[in-house]
Amino acid sequence: HNLTITQGKLFFHYNPKLCLSEIHKMEEVSGTKGRQERNDIALKTNGDQASCENELLKFSYIRTSFDKILLRWEPYWPPDFRDLLGFMLFYKEAPYQNVTEFDGQDACGSNSWTVVDIDPPLRSNDPKSQNHPGWLMRGLKPWTQYAIFVKTLVTFSDERRTYGAKSDIIYVQTDATNPSVPLDPISVSNSSSQIILKWKPPSDPNGNITHYLVFWERQAEDSELFELDYCLKGLKLPSRTWSPPFESEDSQKHNQSEYEDSAGECCSCPKTDSQILKELEESSFRKTFEDYLHNVVFVPRKTSSGTGAEDPRPSRKRRSLGDVGNVTVAVPTVAAFPNTSSTSVPTSPEEHRPFEKVVNKESLVISGLRHFTGYRIELQACNQDTPEERCSVAAYVSARTMPEAKADDIVGPVTHEIFENNVVHLMWQEPKEPNGLIVLYEVSYRRYGDEELHLCVSRKHFALERGCRLRGLSPGNYSVRIRATSLAGNGSWTEPTYFYVTDYLDVPSNIA
Rank of each mutant, 00 (worst) to 15 (best):
Ser203Asn: 15
Ile209Val: 12
Thr210His: 13
His211Leu: 10
Tyr212Ala: 06
Phe215Val: 13
Phe215Asn: 10
Glu217Gln: 15
Arg218Val: 03
Asp222Ala: 13
Leu225Cys: 06
Leu225Trp: 13
Phe226Ile: 06
Glu227Gly: 14
Glu227Val: 10
Leu228Trp: 13
Leu228His: 02
Leu228Ile: 12
Leu232Ala: 10
Ser239Val: 04
Pro244Ile: 12
Pro245Ala: 06
Pro245Thr: 13
Pro245Asp: 13
Glu247Phe: 11
Glu249Tyr: 05
Asp250Gly: 08
Gln252Trp: 11
Gln252Thr: 11
Ser257Asp: 05
Glu258Arg: 10
Glu258Ala: 11
Tyr259Gln: 11
Asp261Ser: 12
Ser262Leu: 10
Ala263Glu: 10
Ala263Tyr: 15
Ala263Val: 12
Gly264Asp: 15
Glu265Leu: 09
Ser268Thr: 15
Pro270Cys: 02
Lys271Asp: 07
Lys271Pro: 05
Ser274Glu: 06
Ser274Tyr: 07
Ser274Met: 03
Leu277Lys: 14
Lys278Glu: 05
Glu282Asp: 15
Ser283Trp: 03
Arg286Asn: 03
Phe289Asp: 15
Leu293Arg: 14
Leu293Pro: 04
Asn295Pro: 14
Asn295Ser: 13
Val296Asp: 11
Val296Trp: 08
Val296Cys: 15
Val297Cys: 04
Phe298Glu: 08
Arg301Gly: 04
Thr303Phe: 08
Ser304Glu: 08
Thr307Ala: 06
Ala309Met: 07
Ala309Ser: 13
Arg313Ala: 12
Lys317Val: 10
Arg319His: 11
Ser320Gly: 14
Leu321Trp: 09
Leu321Gln: 15
Gly322Glu: 08
Ala330Asp: 02
Val331Trp: 14
Val331Phe: 10
Val334Asn: 10
Ala336His: 14
Ala336Gly: 05
Asn339Tyr: 10
Asn339Pro: 10
Thr340Val: 05
Thr340Met: 14
Ser341Val: 13
Ser342Ala: 14
Ser344Leu: 09
Ser344Pro: 10
Val345Thr: 07
Pro346Leu: 12
Thr347Cys: 10
Glu350Trp: 03
Arg353Phe: 03
Pro354Lys: 05
Pro354Asn: 06
Lys357Gln: 04
Asn360Tyr: 06
Glu362Phe: 10
Glu362Ala: 10
Ser367Gln: 11
Gly368Met: 09
Leu369Ile: 02
Arg370Glu: 15
His371Asp: 01
Phe372Trp: 07
Tyr375Arg: 01
Arg376Glu: 04
Ile377Ser: 02
Ile377Thr: 02
Asn383Trp: 05
Asn383Phe: 05
Gln384Glu: 12
Asp385Tyr: 08
Asp385Met: 06
Thr386Trp: 14
Pro387Asn: 03
Pro387Lys: 15
Ser392Pro: 04
Ala394Ile: 15
Ala395Trp: 10
Ala395Cys: 09
Tyr396Trp: 08
Val397Phe: 14
Ser398Ala: 12
Ser398Arg: 12
Ser398Leu: 13
Arg400Lys: 06
Arg400Tyr: 06
Met402Leu: 10
Glu404Gly: 11
Lys406His: 09
Lys406Ala: 14
Asp408His: 01
Asp408Gly: 01
Ile410Val: 15
Gly412Phe: 09
His416Lys: 05
Glu417Cys: 04
Glu417Pro: 03
Phe419Met: 04
Glu420Leu: 05
Asn421Arg: 13
Asn422Val: 03
Val423Ser: 06
Val423Leu: 03
Val424Tyr: 05
His425Cys: 04
His425Gln: 08
His425Trp: 08
Met427Glu: 14
Met427Tyr: 01
Pro434Thr: 05
Asn435Ile: 00
Leu437Asp: 14
Ile438Asp: 01
Val439Leu: 10
Val439Tyr: 15
Val439Lys: 15
Leu440Asp: 05
Glu442Gly: 08
Val443Pro: 01
Ser444Leu: 05
Tyr445Lys: 01
Arg447Lys: 05
Tyr448Glu: 02
Gly449Leu: 13
Asp450Trp: 09
Glu452Arg: 06
Leu453Pro: 03
Leu453Phe: 07
His454Leu: 09
Leu455Asn: 04
Ser458Phe: 03
Ser458Arg: 07
Ser458His: 04
Ser458Trp: 04
Lys460His: 08
His461Cys: 10
His461Val: 10
Phe462Ala: 05
Leu464His: 14
Glu465Ile: 08
Glu465Val: 14
Arg466Leu: 08
Arg466Asp: 11
Gly467Asn: 02
Gly467Arg: 07
Leu470Pro: 01
Arg471Tyr: 15
Arg471Asn: 10
Leu473Pro: 02
Ser474Glu: 14
Pro475Met: 08
Pro475Leu: 04
Pro475Phe: 05
Asn477Met: 06
Ser479Thr: 15
Ile482Val: 14
Ile482Thr: 01
Thr485Met: 08
Leu487Arg: 13
Leu487Trp: 09
Leu487Gly: 02
Ala488Asn: 13
Gly489Phe: 07
Glu495Phe: 15
Tyr498Trp: 06
Phe499Ile: 15
Tyr504Ile: 12
Leu505Gly: 13
Ser509Arg: 06
Ala512Val: 06
